[in-house]
Design a protein around this nucleic acid. Structure first.
Lengths: 188, 188
DNA sequence: GCTTAAATTTACCGATCAGTTAATTAACTT
DNA sequence: AAGTTAATTAACTGATCGGTAAATTTAAGC
């Protein structure tokens, strides 16, 4: 079945928010870009915040699905899958329209710890942590959670660096560090 | 001599922008918070963007001054100063009012590569890179720029992680990776 | 004390913000 | 085809956006 109007709205809104920012994107602009009238949008979502949250939930699902699948495709063992995270990042950075991490940006505009948008952003990162921890455990790490935290610091750093267009290949740099890190944690 | 009205304005505006975001902070709100009327503000700055840029330039200077001085205070050799960067970060993260990196946030709200705010944010990071590269060279790194890029990826990752309040001590995690990295690059 | 210029204030500009009301169109039921 | 309901629209709300014009206060020069 074809996507509902509501799903179309969320998808398109997400795209505009990503490209343009949250506060900088008004509901009128979204109406113009989606071809859906404002009143219809407010039929589906009570507030702009609700629409943003729906967009972020979609992004969370899509991004994790994409990243985890790509890691599994590019790596055959838990250890090589961890390494492959940085190959996947490299692909992402090269996509045109890449503008950094949606959740870093969301948490930059909605900073209150109690803000649902901030919370959802942190939750996304925690779900990544769960997956990477699991993988680190299966790779035989003595402290899988510590290893996961460190790998994810590299990931976040690479994303920020890529977004600011510093360095030629932040994913490659991060991967080089990850290699050393895994050698230390799992043996070379 | 006491700070000029203009400097007071920039300082206070910077603080509000940092806490509240850029688009979310209106000029009327700044007038209310600083006690300076809007017309006076526009005497000093032609546009809101100019005020933001002045704030970011101040932050750039202050932050680099603070970080570099702290690294020199906490470390006696180039190598230990590189390590001390993460001790300084830990101090920063623990300050109340810490809300992540001003420049990451600025570049999240002003994403166009041609935007002066985006450019200034990237320039700030490049100045950090120059300093860390220099230090890496003096520490005897065979590829000081590669080492600097990698250490700074750890720095950015730690900042983002701390801002989202993931993990207990991202600075410590990043430092642990830095230690391994330096051992590999400079010998243990 | 008077004049002049600089700094500050109040009040306002049109545009846009998130969100709503009332009228219209489209779709389904019988 | 008529009647009912659901979806959509244009037009509007008060508030706020970035920015300004004209009036008022403050300060300086003589």
């Amino acid at each position: 079945m074809r996507p509902s109007k509501r799903d179309e709205l969320v998808e398109k809104a997400l795209e505009v928010f990503y490209h343009n920012g949250f506060h900088a994107t008004g509901m009128d602009m979204l109406a113009a870009r989606t071809g859906i009238s404002k009143t219809s949008m407010y039929k589906h979502f009570r507030t702009k915040e609700d629409l943003i949250l729906a967009g972020l939930r979609l992004r969370d699902k899509e991004f994790r699905l994409w990243l985890f699948r790509r890691m599994e495709e590019l790596g055959s063992t838990p250890r090589s899958q961890l390494m492959a995270m940085f190959d996947a990042l490299k692909e992402w950075f090269a996509q045109d329209g890449f503008r950094g991490c949606m959740f870093i940006k969301a948490s930059a505009e909605y900073q209150e710890a109690s803000d649902p948008i901030f919370k959802l952003s942190a939750d996304h990162k925690r779900l990544l942590f769960v997956y990477v921890s699991e993988l680190a455990a299966r790779a035989g790490a003595a402290e899988p959670e510590a290893l996961a935290r460190r790998l994810l610091i590299l990931k976040e750093g690479a994303i920020v660096t890529a977004h600011l267009r510093l360095g030629e290949n932040p994913a490659k740099d991060a991967k080089a560090v990850a290699k050393i890190l895994l050698a230390e944690a799992l043996g070379s």
